[in-house]
């Protein structure tokens, strides 16, 4: 199936969960990433149980703390 990850279209295997995608995408600090699927937040305790569907659009939002 085809999904969009951070604006880039990707072919992934059917039944992929958000947790698996986080591993496949080598997300930095996976414990503290915010995930949205089709403009809805996914609670971190639902990453495991959230199965992605064809056409889904996934965004990873990272903590960025610097500024001084």
């Amino acid at each position: 199936m085809l999904i969009t990850v951070a604006g880039v279209k990707k072919e992934v295997k059917d039944g992929l969960t958000v947790s698996q995608l986080i591993v496949d995408e080598k997300v930095e600090t996976p414990m503290y990433v915010t995930v949205s699927v089709n403009d809805e937040f996914i609670a971190s305790d639902s990453f495991e149980s959230t199965v992605l569907k064809d056409g889904d659009s996934v965004e990873f939002l990272y903590f960025m703390g610097g500024g001084q």
Partner: peptide, 19 residues
């Protein structure tokens, strides 16, 4: 806070001069 919920634990995410 809608997006990031709560601060990550100390030193879990780089912020300071080390980065």
């Amino acid at each position: 806070r809608c997006v990031f919920k709560e601060p990550p634990p100390k030193d879990a995410v780089p912020t300071c001069k080390q980065a």
